[in-house]
Computed example of a mutant assay.
Amino acid sequence: MTRTDENEQDPEDVLAALADPIRREILAVLAREGGATSTSLAARLPITRQAVAKHLAVLGQAGLVRAHRAGREVRYEADPQPLRRTTRWMDTLANQWEHRLNTIKNLAEGATGP
């Protein structure tokens, strides 16, 4: 899939980032709490701060997380926009498949009719 906007993430990038349960948990914490540092995230998760930082980098590349410096700390916040765009893409794909399946159903029912 090609990007329509330079700042818009491909659904593939978002889905790949969300494939990992730790990244989903990190994103859930950030969305629930409005932001956190890698140190505070590591305190809640069964992984090291370095591992959290790597997961945050993947989420950041997918556009799902933004980093902001606050003094000596870097705070991370969830960005729901790429997830919304991916959801819209998935809805469009589902509608296309639904249309195709209905067409096949109608053809099959017409072929077996009286």
Rank of each mutant, 00 (worst) to 15 (best):
T2E: 12
T4S: 09
T4W: 03
D5F: 15
E6M: 10
E6V: 11
Q9I: 01
Q9F: 01
Q9C: 10
Q9T: 04
D10V: 09
D10S: 14
P11C: 03
E12H: 12
D13A: 15
D13E: 15
V14S: 05
A16Q: 12
A16D: 15
A16C: 07
I22P: 02
L27A: 03
L27S: 03
V29H: 09
L30H: 05
L30G: 06
E33G: 04
E33P: 00
A36F: 02
S38H: 01
T39S: 09
T39C: 00
A42N: 03
P46S: 09
I47A: 03
T48G: 06
T48M: 01
A53T: 13
A53M: 07
K54F: 06
L56E: 02
A57P: 00
A57E: 08
L59M: 05
G60Q: 05
H68G: 03
H68L: 08
R69C: 02
G71K: 10
G71E: 09
R72W: 03
V74C: 04
E77V: 12
E77R: 08
A78L: 03
A78F: 08
P80T: 07
Q81C: 01
P82M: 10
R84G: 02
T87S: 13
R88Q: 14
W89G: 06
D91R: 15
A94S: 12
Q96G: 15
Q96W: 05
W97S: 08
E98M: 07
E98Q: 13
E98G: 02
H99T: 15
H99Y: 13
L101I: 08
N102Q: 14
N106T: 13
L107K: 11
A111K: 10
A111H: 11
